[in-house]
């Protein structure tokens, strides 16, 4: 027992003195990838979600194709495909890791979240649209002022969950050589294997600390959502 306290002590001291500063070198990459992925992920979700409700069959089927492709394959495969295969396919020498990473995460989760956007808009009571027709609002005004704000409230809890999923997904960018926190951790481990426990524990703690505000945000979203569905 005493031994383990001692060992934990070593880990903690190790963590603070040696590992922490190394990992911190990658934190800005992790956060950048996360923020950009979230922005583009929501953007794709809204565009695709609305397109799937379009009256135009070409727009609708193209979007469905995108959504099914990205939901049907795995994120890590998409990431590798975007980074290694696309430049080869078009014979272009783009070597932009950030773009590939952000695109993979945001296209993947955008596809999943577009289903939420679509579902929430369809779930808004038909009477709301009818009432806004009776008030002679235009099609766009109906969407902007009446349907969309109500649908948005329904989307919040799921959107919160996907925020955490996207944060977790940022760890994958180390696999295409981006120097995020995991990348620096892996280098540290490969030079000194005995540091592995400290490195990976600290990485997990890092991610958990970043996830905490998102967890609370999700709960907040659930509350707002519950209030929002109150009957009109």
């Amino acid at each position: 027992m005493e031994f383990y306290f001692l060992y934990m002590g070593v880990i903690i001291i190790n963590a603070i003195i040696e590992v922490f500063p190394v990992l911190m070198k990658g934190i800005h990459i992790t956060i950048t990838v996360f923020i950009l992925s979230v922005i583009f992920g929501y953007l794709f979700a809204f565009i695709a979600g609305l397109c799937r409700l379009s009256n135009n069959i070409i727009i609708r089927s193209t979007t469905s194709f995108y959504v099914e492709i990205f939901r049907g394959t795995s994120l890590i495969v998409q990431l590798f495909w975007l980074y290694y295969a696309i430049p080869m396919l078009f014979n272009i020498g783009i070597d932009n890791r950030l773009m590939a990473g952000v695109l993979a995460i945001s296209l993947n989760y955008g596809a999943y979240m577009s289903e939420i956007v679509r579902g929430s808009i369809l779930a808004v009571d038909k009477g709301q649209t009818e009432a806004s027709i009776a008030l002679n609002l235009t099609r766009f005004q109906r969407m902007r002022l009446v349907v969309f704000p109500q649908a948005l409230r329904m989307m919040l809890p799921e959107f919160g969950n996907y925020l955490i999923q996207m944060l977790k997904a940022t760890s994958l960018v180390s696999l295409i050589g981006m120097t995020d926190i995991l990348y620096h951790g892996n280098i540290l481990r490969s030079t000194n294997l005995s540091m592995a426990p400290t490195v990976y524990l600290l990485l997990l703690v890092f991610y958990f600390i970043m996830a905490l505000p998102l967890i609370f945000l999700t709960r907040k979203g659930e509350e707002i959502s519950k209030r929002g569905v109150a009957n009109g």
């Binding site: 009571d125 009477g127 709301q128 009818e130 009432a131 806004s132 009776a134 009446v146 704000p149 109500q150 409230r153 929002g228 569905v229 109150a230 009957n231 009109g232």
Partner: peptide
């Protein structure tokens, strides 16, 4: 005016 009011809840 509708049977189920259809007020805008938000």
């Amino acid at each position: 005016v509708f049977q189920h009011f259809n007020l805008f809840p938000h």
